[in-house]
Design a protein around this nucleic acid. Structure first.
Lengths: 146, 146
DNA sequence: CCAATTCCGAGGAACTTGGTCGGGATTGTT
DNA sequence: AACAATCCCGACCAAGTTCCTCGGAATTGG
């Protein structure tokens, strides 16, 4: 019942972009170094994020990545779904499966749907901007205590 | 981000017990047959449920299993936690880890805690009795339509 | 005593995870 | 034009997890 490193790294990479990108694109190596993630592995993940339209890339020297949209318009759900597949605690609540052979199975299905709905509620309403704001506030607090 | 068959089968087995057990204990073979689950595999799962105090067993001929408590007092969360481990979408929100090296990690941690809380809210407030009731209502509806 | 049943630990095939490796394509800089 | 930085792509692989199977010992009602 865990989100794998794909989702975790993906969210961290997107947060990194939200925090550290300016006009110039951020090269993969910088994200990987800051977030302490294998560069080659992260490449696979960010490639998926690019294909999903969440980041844009610039090739060649001085190239790198940027968010494709304002952080306010990117939800954590989009990131997770891109990297981990549908947010569904059970196969039978992916898409629109209506084929339940046993009535008991249907009863459990209602349960999984409730669970899925509550997970989606959190992930689809939390934006990257919210996460960025949280991170900056934590940084500020840490700076004050110094 | 899926619950594995351990959790799925476990919930179904417990629901089966809630639905079909009377005074006499229900043998594993009956549950396995009704739920179409490998008997040997289910044995491992129900053994864990027994050690967790969710079912009680009777050995020997005419033996079998029964719920250890009324269905009202058994939550789906207990079942899932027994079979799948802590309900935590990420390692860092299991138990009380307070060691965040980077502030960005702490920001994502707040996110995972929100997600965890919403999952627990569903799983800990849903009881086996609720599920049993759902299953019986679905059965009744199906019977009427015939 | 016997059949039904739970209890227990070892093993194993298939899949998933979390990467590595090597090289090609593109582009700013000199 | 050359070069270095960088993205892009596909193949491969080790370790772990999942989802079982198998064989047999212990217990107990009839």
């Amino acid at each position: 019942m865990r989100i794998s490193t794909r989702g975790e790294y993906g969210v961290r990479a997107m947060l990194d972009l939200a925090l550290y990108s300016s006009d110039e694109p951020v090269p993969l190596s910088a994200i990987a170094a800051r977030q302490d993630i294998s560069e080659h592995y992260l490449e696979q993940l960010i490639s998926a994020l690019r294909k999903a339209g969440l980041v844009i890339s610039f090739r060649g020297a001085q190239g790198g990545y940027q968010l494709a949209k304002p952080a306010e318009e990117i939800t954590i759900g989009e990131i997770i779904r891109t990297l981990e597949g549908p947010i569904a605690p059970m196969k039978c609540v992916e898409g629109s499966h209506t084929d339940c052979t046993q009535s008991e199975l249907c009863a459990t299905r209602v349960l999984w749907q409730k669970l899925q709905a509550s997970m989606e509620a959190v992930l689809e309403t939390t934006t990257l901007a919210w996460l960025k704001d949280k991170a900056q506030k934590i940084q500020a607090t840490a700076a004050n205590q110094r």
